[in-house]
């Protein structure tokens, strides 16, 4: 367990994260993106938990036998990353819930949850918005009018 072998666990977390990241970027479906985001975050959790492992360690729960005798069982794994990741898991499920709520709303108002279609619709909306607000340039305004006059 030295050299590259000693850190292979970290590499798998990278692999998992990258599968997730790939999904987030490459998949146009919003649900897929949300799920892939979850994978991505789980990869990081794996990293943290791997960080906590110690050779020959055991769960950081001190054994309390009911009769009151305690026994020490060797090195415990580090509890700190566990605590952090508990928090992070909660965060990730919260994010997922909010994302799903947004996706449902999007489906209802747009009728689709494919990113590329949404993008196209948003672009069209934006263009319409732009045109509605345009013709502010008085200079252009007059030029147009003159042009029209000329043609007439």
């Amino acid at each position: 367990m030295t050299g590259a072998l000693g850190i292979y666990n970290y590499w798998i977390y990278v692999l998992l994260m990258m599968i997730g990241l790939y999904g987030v970027i490459a998949k146009p479906n919003l649900i897929k993106q949300a799920i892939a985001l979850g994978l991505f975050q789980t990869g990081i959790f794996l990293y943290y938990i791997s960080m906590a492992v110690i050779d020959g360690g055991t769960a950081p729960v001190w054994t309390t036998i009911l009769d009151g005798a305690q026994k020490y069982e060797g090195p415990y794994d580090n509890p700190l990353p566990h605590v952090l990741i508990l928090t992070a898991i909660v965060v990730s499920v919260s994010v997922l819930a909010v994302a799903l709520a947004l996706i449902i709303n999007i489906k209802r108002t747009y009728g689709t949850i494919e990113y590329d279609e949404l993008e196209a619709m948003d672009q069209a909306d934006k263009r319409a918005d732009y045109q509605r607000g345009q013709v502010v340039d008085a200079a252009d305004d007059v030029e147009h009018r003159l042009e029209g006059h000329h043609h007439a």
């Binding site: 987030v24 919003l30 985001l37 994302a99 947004l102 108002t109 747009y110 949404l118 909306d125």
Partner: peptide, 12 residues
Amino acid sequence: RQALTASLRYLI
């Protein structure tokens, strides 16, 4: 409605 896509994009 673009608020929704804006929000989701920000979320991701």
